[in-house]
Computed example of a mutant assay.
Amino acid sequence: MEGKKVVFIEDSNDKENADGARGHLEAVGISRYKAGIYEKCVKRVLDVILSGLGLIVLSPAFLVIVISIKVDDPGPVLFTQKRVGKNKKYFKLHKFRSMKMATPHDVPTHMLDNPDQYITKVGTFMRRTSIDEIPQVFDIFVGNMSIIGPRPALWNQDVLIAERDKYNANDVKPGLTGWAQINGRDELEIPDKARLDGDYVKKISFLFDVKCFIGTIISVIKHDGIVEGGTGEIHKKEQK
């Protein structure tokens, strides 16, 4: 599906995907999105400079986090997942592992039954402060991500991928944070998240990226929009 426009086709014969729906993606054309000069050149230069500095400055913190994770729950320090990058090209996203080794892989948190049971003690703190996302600074440095952009979808989040295609949100690099992240984050339903990602694509500029960056700092401090299990967990509580 790389570089193509897609739609989600419901099919009860398909396995349930990461969005909790049964169906698959079908290509309906070719993407005609054209990036501007800022996105193609300036944004990448800023990503390299800032992520490079981040790797250097944050290296002492990396060591502390690594030790904390190892002591709390022995196992790999980093957690990798296959995600959807620019033009729907897959890449490996890196995070500090915040969940126990027994947690199902490639399953979104909102699809886990009682997700809190899988999160380690250190992981709870990391997720509340978004520290678990720090290794993605490396993903930015090598060019798989940008500092600002739509959060990268899991490879099997077909509904989200199709919704984002309506707004060309799969045609830009995914980001460490973005417009949707500071306007609801885990509390957003898929159509709303995709629409906000589309708003970002329309407004991509240096000033808008700065606005998203400052908004992210404020959101992290206030812990806005953080719901373990996302909308899936919210719906479960509403049903109860």
Rank of each mutant, 00 (worst) to 15 (best):
F8T: 11
E10V: 10
N13R: 11
N17A: 06
R22N: 07
R22I: 00
A27G: 01
G29T: 00
G36M: 03
G36N: 15
G36E: 08
I37T: 12
I37P: 12
Y38S: 06
V42M: 11
V48W: 12
I49V: 15
L50V: 15
G54R: 11
G54A: 13
F62S: 09
L63Y: 08
L63P: 04
I69T: 07
P76S: 15
F79P: 12
V84A: 02
N87F: 10
Y90L: 14
S98Y: 09
M99Y: 03
M99N: 03
M101G: 01
T103G: 04
T103S: 10
P104D: 05
M111T: 03
M111R: 14
D113V: 13
P115I: 04
I119W: 03
T120E: 08
T120S: 12
K121F: 05
K121M: 04
G123L: 02
F125L: 12
M126N: 01
T129V: 02
T129S: 14
S130Y: 05
E133K: 03
F138E: 01
I140S: 02
N144Q: 13
N144W: 09
S146P: 08
G149H: 11
A153C: 15
A153I: 12
L154V: 06
L160N: 09
L160P: 12
I161W: 08
E163R: 05
R164H: 08
V172H: 11
K173N: 14
P174Q: 11
G178Q: 09
A180V: 09
G184S: 05
L188H: 02
E189H: 06
K193P: 04
A194Y: 02
G198L: 08
K203T: 04
T216S: 14
I217P: 11
I218Y: 12
I218V: 15
K222V: 04
V227W: 03
G229I: 08
G232K: 12
G232C: 09
E233F: 10
I234S: 06
E238N: 13
